[in-house]
């Protein structure tokens, strides 16, 4: 589905990614685990096209996309939920969903725009109730659901989520994760970055552990769990 080979990204002099290679299987949830500054966000931004890598290649469904602009990758089915709950907070919930839909769907698809937005309201009634409120007035959890809904409206095949649990109450995290599993069941491939390793392994099929721009561990759910059991995982965080 997605293949990154030997990615290097430098922010000026800071080496954010130093030769990262990963392979994503379709219809999987892959967790990217690591501490602050390990390169998780950079990696997701490179996949979505917000950051152009200094070196390395990205193949999406066997097609090289690393030189394509964001807008084009969006059209090919890659949706990116950025960290820090980015939303158009000065516009209404409904307008956010409209914006999430309009510029990423084909003309054909736009005929059903309102129907598809209403499906979001059916899935999350709280968003329907608050559809004319400004998005900035929603609670953190509601905002996160709205953001993921906006991403879903483009009917993505690959969904990237950057720390979706950050700052959310545990019960809300459960809700978000439950929705991700639902999406996986619908055939969406998901990559989720998490600092909280214990959270990520609850839903991940596979995981990569990043430390200062390098992959220091990878494996399936059993491998990740055994890493958690041993001291290996905390040494990634605490040295």
């Amino acid at each position: 589905m997605l293949k990154l080979t030997d990615l290097h990204v430098n922010y000026g002099p800071i080496k954010a990614l130093q030769g990262v290679s990963i392979d994503i299987e379709p219809n999987n949830i892959t967790a990217i685990i690591g501490a602050n500054g390990s390169g998780k966000s950079t990696m997701l931004s490179v996949i979505s096209g917000l950051i152009i890598p200094d070196q390395g290649e990205i193949y999406y469904k066997d097609i090289a996309i690393h030189t394509k602009p964001v807008e084009e990758r969006v059209k090919q089915g890659i949706a990116h939920v950025m960290e820090g709950r980015r939303l158009f907070k000065d516009q209404s919930v409904h307008d956010n969903l409209l914006l999430g839909f309009y510029f990423r769907n084909s003309k054909e698809n736009k005929k059903n725009m309102l129907k598809q937005i209403n499906e979001v309201y059916d899935r999350f009634p709280i968003l329907g109730e608050k559809k004319s409120q400004l998005a900035g007035t929603l609670s953190g959890g509601q905002q996160q659901l709205l953001i993921i809904s906006m991403a879903i409206l483009s009917k993505p095949q690959l969904l990237l989520l950057d720390e979706p649990s950050l700052g959310l109450a545990p019960i809300v995290v459960d809700q978000v994760y439950q929705y991700l599993e639902e999406l996986k069941a619908q055939g969406v491939t998901i990559i989720v970055s998490e600092q909280m390793a214990a959270l990520a392994i609850r839903i991940a099929d596979y995981g990569y552990v990043l430390e200062r721009g390098k992959v220091v561990g990878k494996g399936d759910i059993h491998y990740l769990k055994s890493m958690m059991e041993s001291d290996e995982m905390s040494s990634v965080y605490f040295g």
């Binding site: 980015r86 914006l99 309009y102």
Partner: peptide, 20 residues
């Protein structure tokens, strides 16, 4: 108009939403 407000608010997020 909404897209314009969106770009004003957060140009990178707007790009991710497919807005040029």
């Amino acid at each position: 108009g909404k897209a314009m407000k969106a770009v004003a608010f957060d140009p990178n997020f707007a790009r991710v939403m497919g807005i040029k």
